[in-house]
Write a protein that binds this DNA or RNA. Structure first.
Length: 424
RNA sequence: GUGAGUGUAGCUCAACUGGUUAGAGCGUGGGACUGUGGCUCCUAAGGCUACGGGUUCAACUCCCGUCACUCACCCCA
């Protein structure tokens, strides 16, 4: 039996879960503030859903999906991203009949079979939001600002917002052709990948990182110059709304996204404190997605935000993150009778809502105190023969060392009295 | 999937150009302090040096293979 998790899949240990809970709490606060409600969808979906929406030519579908036959012989896939499942739920439950827009968020594991690297895992946790039903450019701006607000609340800096518009099915073909025309003469000098992109998905020619391909993109035609009137107006409005909200961003004409369903707005929030995998949040508009799944024509915008990357970036920036919460009370006892009495007191403490624990290792009193200190106990309750005889106990305050004798049955109420130091 | 680097105690790292019982700090258990934590000191446990093979009188050290991890590419959160 191999006692190790699968490649690219991490355990989150007790020392680390508090920081996760902090981030999740902030996510929920921000979502509540912006009017997004939580949705939970299954980990598995029909493979078809992702092939049709994310796109047959995308890398995600071609080589990164965890796909297998279930026992009924159906091809199923562990979700590689969250937008398609949310859109599927929107259609399945006819949420287009509800007041629009429908705004949802999720915190859920995503799976992609890739080679792990700093900030890249096979299972990662994504916080995502989706706003279905409105094509208003102010919604695009809102979506971006949800991400930025979260980062702001967490104290994450060193970010840059990259924004672009890749047009719609009406104007994109003209752009695609212009791009092909531009690259046609130099195809032979491009890398192998780019030669394939030239055929299949010319937009992607723009984000190749190889020098031999990179030098051409400076003078390549830009998406924004080929937008139809509606798309151009939309893009202008998005920028205006974002600017009015006080956010700074950069228009990056080279930004195109890897998933096929995007239309118009695409954006990416990049952190300067991550390695090569520096995109912490990215998304865009997907006006054709719902219809493609079988719903009525419905616009939508959203983003995905990698929580592992967010945590990494926070750590790299030295943002203070919480560790395990300390105990209110540790019950230390000497002798068998005192141990039994201690257990009864422990129950009373817990019943009163005080976080408390005792020693189950038969440690010496001294070692129990030491252990209590490590657990971060604010008070230690001492119970030995002397105390038992008097039906009382010694309460020690760990930060000051002050001690009191308190009758056993009054311990919880004594501790809860505000002046004695436990603040709820 | 491609390329490179690294695998020594729970963690972070030592061990000269191959040389005999593989060390230290932190952490963990116990003690100095017979019923009182943090500081200090003492002490113990903990290693098939990732795994398998080869070279050699001798391998943590050199060679080959496997696996794992890391970084970069592809791509993405």
């Amino acid at each position: 039996m191999p006692a190790s998790a699968l490649k690219g899949m991490l355990d989150t240990l007790p020392d680390e879960t508090p920081r996760w809970r902090l981030v999740e709490a902030r996510v929920r606060e921000v979502c509540a503030l912006f009017g997004y409600s939580e949705i939970r969808t299954p980990v598995l979906e029909q493979t078809e859903l992702f092939i049709r929406t994310v796109g047959e030519s995308s890398d995600v579908v071609r080589k990164e999906m965890y796909t297998f036959q279930d026992r009924g012989g159906r091809s199923v896939t562990m979700r590689p991203e969250g937008t398609a499942p949310a859109a599927r739920a929107y259609v399945q439950h006819r949420m287009y009949l509800k007041p629009q827009p429908v705004k949802v968020f999720y915190i859920a594991p995503m799976f992609r079979y890739e080679r792990p690297q700093g900030g890249r895992l096979r299972q990662h946790t994504q916080f995502g939001i989706e706003a279905f039903g409105s094509s208003h450019p102010a919604v695009d701006a809102e979506v971006v600002s949800v991400g930025l607000s979260l980062f702001g609340r967490l104290g994450l800096g060193g970010l840059s917002v990259q924004l672009n518009s890749i047009g719609c099915p009406r104007c994109r073909p003209a752009y695609r052709e212009a791009l092909r025309d531009y690259y046609r003469g130099v195809v032979g000098e491009l890398c192998g990948d780019c030669r394939e992109r030239f055929e299949k998905n010319p937009l992607r020619l723009l984000d190749c990182k190889r020098d031999e391909c990179r030098k051409y993109r400076e003078r390549a035609p830009r998406t924004v110059d080929y937008l139809c009137a509606e798309c151009a107006d939309h893009f202008e409005a998005v920028k205006e709304y974002l600017g009015d909200a006080g956010f700074t961003f950069e228009v990056n004409p080279l930004l195109v996204r890897g998933l096929d369903y995007y239309t118009r707005t695409v954006f990416e929030i990049v952190s300067a404190t991550l390695g090569a995998q520096n995109s912490v949040c990215s998304g865009g508009r997907y006006d054709g997605l719902v219809e493609q799944i079988g719903g009525p024509p419905t616009p939508g915008v959203g983003f995905g935000l990698g929580l592992e990357r967010l945590l990494l970036s926070l750590e790299n920036q030295g943002v203070a993150l919480p560790g395990p919460a300390g105990l209110d009370v540790f019950v230390a006892t000497v002798g068998e009778e005192a141990f039994k009495s201690g257990l009864r007191t422990l129950h009373a403490l817990r019943k009163a809502g005080l976080t408390s624990d005792t020693d189950y290792m038969g440690r010496s009193l001294k070692a129990q105190l030491k252990h209590a200190d490590r657990l971060g106990a604010r008070f230690v309750l001492l119970l030995g023969e002397d105390e038992l005889a008097r039906l009382s106990c010694t309460i020690r305050r760990m930060d000051t060392g002050a001690q009191w004798q308190v009758p056993l049955d009054e311990v919880p109420s004594w501790l809860l009295r505000h002046e004695n130091g436990i603040e709820r």
